[in-house]
Simulated assay, not measured.
Amino acid sequence: MDRTGKLIVPYHNRVGNFSEGLVWVHNHYTSKYGFMNRTGKLVVQYIYTQVKNFSEGLAAVKKNGKWGFIDTTGKLIIDNQFESANSFSEGLAIVEKDNKYGVIINPLKK
């Protein structure tokens, strides 16, 4: 709600916390996740089976059983190729691929 009590993000049955201007939302009709901005506009469509909050410009998203990373516009930056993925912290994220864990570097950091 805004300061006047007006609802700015439509009700959903599951909603995350705002991070980097976006909040993940769950569509209970499709059982998929997307992201909304502060005005309630859906900026990333409901196409993911799981998502994590944005961190350092990227969010981990799961589609077709694999995790990848999108930017705040919804563009896929790192292909969905991981069995698991943590959010970026200090430019790094821990991921699992082929039952082995490793660290990837945030491609948005220079």
Rank of each mutant, 00 (worst) to 15 (best):
E20V: 09
P10Q: 11
I94Y: 11
Q81G: 00
F35K: 01
Y29F: 14
V43C: 04
P10A: 07
F69T: 11
G40F: 08
Y29L: 15
F82L: 05
V15L: 10
H28I: 14
G34T: 07
G91S: 13
N53D: 15
T39D: 14
G68I: 08
T4M: 05
H28R: 09
H26T: 01
H26V: 04
L76K: 12
I104A: 08
V15R: 07
T72G: 06
E20W: 08
I77W: 15
S31Y: 12
L7H: 04
F35R: 01
T73E: 12
A59Q: 04
S84Y: 09
W24T: 02
I8Q: 05
E20A: 13
N37Y: 00
I70E: 11
G5Y: 08
F54L: 12
N99H: 13
K32Y: 07
F18G: 06
N99S: 14
S87H: 14
V95R: 02
K6Q: 10
T4P: 02
R3I: 04
R3F: 06
Q50N: 03
K63D: 04
G65I: 03
H28Y: 12
M36A: 06
N37T: 02
K41S: 11
Y101H: 09
G65Y: 02
V43K: 05
D2G: 03
S89V: 10
V9W: 06
V15P: 00
R38K: 15
V95K: 06
T72R: 14
T49P: 02
K66H: 05
S84R: 04
K41M: 07
L58A: 03
Y29K: 14
A60G: 09
G16H: 07
R38T: 07
N80I: 00
N86P: 00
D79T: 09
G57N: 12
W24C: 06
E90P: 06
G40S: 12
Q45N: 13
S87G: 15
K97F: 04
Y46F: 15
R38G: 06
G34P: 02
L76G: 10
K100E: 14
S89T: 11
S55C: 04
I70W: 08
F35T: 03
L22K: 02
L76P: 09
G5F: 01
L58T: 02
V61H: 01
G5R: 01
Y46T: 10
E83D: 15
E90I: 04
K109T: 10
G74M: 06
V44N: 01
L76M: 12
E96K: 13
V25L: 04
L58D: 02
N86T: 02
K109I: 08
K109F: 07
I105P: 09
H28F: 10
V43Y: 06
F18T: 01
V51R: 07
G91L: 09
N64A: 14
T49Q: 05
G74F: 05
Y46G: 02
S87K: 15
V25G: 02
A60Q: 03
A93S: 13
F69G: 09
F35N: 04
Y11T: 05
E56R: 11
